[in-house]
Amino acid sequence: MKLTRARGCLLGLAAGDALGRPAENLAPEEIARRWGRLTEIEPGMGGTDDTEYTVFASSLLCRYGSAMTSADVAREYREQIIPNIEGPMRGAGFSELGAIQALRRGIEPPLSGLWHQHGWSDGLAMRAAPYGIFAAGDPGEAARLVAVDGAVSNSGEGIYGGQAVAAAVAVAMTGASPDEVVEAGIAAIPEDSWTSRNLRAAVAAVTAGSAAEPYAADSAGKPHTADAVAKLYEAVVVRHYPWTDLAPEAVALAFAGYLMGAGEVEASVVAAANLGRDADTTAAIAGALAGAGRGESAVPARWAREIGPVTGRCLPVVAGRHVLDVATELVAASERPA
């Protein structure tokens, strides 16, 4: 069971990444104008940095396990990522680019995650799922481990966003209900934080919406009411800021999508992707949560067919790796004696 959940988690993540990709930075109205409802992965396009950084994080866990330190992660950045950057660094978020510049200056974690201005980026949340797989059933350990990685590139709310996702995946790996999964994510982070406030506001907005007009639990095709989306936006989206990679916002939208989809893979991923903003990341997180809960076979076959080995476009070091193999290795690593 653990294996199929792990494979479902990373396959769901990759599918969400690929589905959300063309909707990134679009408003829900624009998504509706272009696609009606975005439900199909663009053929042959694959995923983005979300999937590739997730593969990279998995490789760290397989190598270091629960003994991993932030110094280990910084060293891996310096040995595996930085030397492979030729010319432009593609597809990475601000937090990763900022952290790499800090590391190049010789700044060590946790200052490397503070030095740049995108400490709150969702760059950790997008690669947090492997920590939940590795520490399945133990949200506290998942949250501890992901913060070890996050200290290199993120700070504050960016760490909390990663911790909420990792803890939620750890609980989803037990087959818990979506409500319990979301609750575990919220419980893993300080109550007096932006991410916690936003997650609770997103839950309230989604719950209020479903009372008025129930969300389709199993129909990816049914659009959510514009009013419900507007309420959710009002609750968690920063209106006057052009960048969409704020972890408090993205993780809240991802969890909202997961709840709107009632934890079903297709419905959750579609719901998150059609909310727009950082749609590849939010749909990837929703897919990771739902895939962990429902297992590999719950990921639509037409989506799974589109997920091949990653190209290494963003991170050359992971080129050729397939998320399903990575998930299998993660489970094996998690079962090795510490």
């Binding site: 932006w194 406030r197 936003n198 009002e234 920063v238 006057h240 800021y241």
Partner: peptide, 23 residues
């Protein structure tokens, strides 16, 4: 400041108005 004013208008007082703020 824009984000803080939005926070205040939404009923979120300081220090959250300055904390839950991208800048």
């Amino acid at each position: 400041v824009r984000s803080a004013l939005d926070n205040l208008a939404a009923g979120k007082p300081p220090p959250a108005s300055g904390h839950d703020n991208p800048h």
